Computed example of a mutant assay.
Amino acid sequence: MLTTNDIIKEGHPTLRRVADDVVLPPTLEDIATLDMMLEYLQNSQNPEISMQHDLRPGIGLAAPQINISKKMIAIHARDESGNLHSYKLLNPRIVSHSVERSYLTTGEGCLSVDREVPGLVPRYARVTVKAVNTEGEEVKLRLKGLIAIVFQHEIDHLNGVMFYDHIDQNNPFQPIEGAIPIER
């Protein structure tokens, strides 16, 4: 079982590397890693388990965050309508996106960042993601709102990008023109 201690923190070089593609079909080890990543997210959202194991709550996790430099992400989050989106994906990539932007009104956080980073993070309002699931099948997802933001955040990790790299350093709360505010 993954714990908060297994998650590397900002400043660790793996977080700034571009992760390697996962060789397909995925190995049993890759599938087991994704299973552990999703299990962490599920456990971290369960108040009893989270407290018992001192887990920091999360809705997305990328393999580089557990010091595995491979393109793998797990997401376990509810959208604005309360629908659960739970994924274990290999080699995810954004193949198209809207011109329109969105942002979380509360800003973003990250399991690899143990501090508050104030500021608005501009994201695309809608993205289309292609990836491979653990059965080796290609999947295509059209995403919007919070789930689109979570995917962009995790895919950034695969490219060595941290969420705060997107914040305007001179004016962190500069309104993002025409962007859709998303409450969380």
Rank of each mutant, 00 (worst) to 15 (best):
H166M: 07
F151G: 08
A131G: 03
G119Y: 08
E116M: 15
G119T: 05
T134I: 14
V139T: 05
G119M: 12
A125E: 14
E154Q: 06
V139K: 10
N159D: 14
E135K: 13
V139G: 01
L146T: 10
K130C: 00
V161T: 14
I147K: 02
E108Q: 12
G136F: 02
N133Y: 02
K140T: 13
L143G: 04
L111N: 00
D156N: 13
E116R: 15
P118Y: 14
D114P: 00
L158Q: 01
V139H: 05
G160T: 04
A131E: 07
L141N: 08
V161K: 14
D165S: 14
H166D: 04
K140N: 09
I147R: 04
G136Q: 03
F151N: 06
G136C: 06
I149Y: 02
V150H: 06
P118M: 14
G136N: 06
L143P: 10
R142Y: 08
I147Y: 07
L146H: 11
P118S: 14
V132S: 04
L158I: 01
R142W: 03
G109N: 13
G160F: 00
V161H: 12
I155R: 00
G160D: 10
V139D: 04
Q152E: 14
R115S: 15
V150P: 01
V117R: 10
T128H: 01
D156L: 10
N133G: 05
H157Q: 08
G107A: 12
L158Y: 02
E137Y: 02
Y124I: 01
E137K: 12
R123W: 06
D165G: 12
H153G: 09
V121R: 10
Y164Q: 15
V127E: 11
H153W: 09
E138L: 00
E135T: 11
R123S: 04
T134W: 00
A131W: 01
V113C: 15
L120Y: 15
V139I: 14
A148P: 07
N159I: 00
T128F: 01
D156H: 11
D156M: 07
R126Y: 02
K140H: 03
R142D: 13
P118G: 14
G136R: 07
E138N: 10
G119F: 06
R142M: 08
Q152W: 02
F163H: 13
V113Q: 12
G107H: 11
E135Q: 12
T128Y: 01
R142K: 13
E137M: 08
N133C: 04
V127D: 03
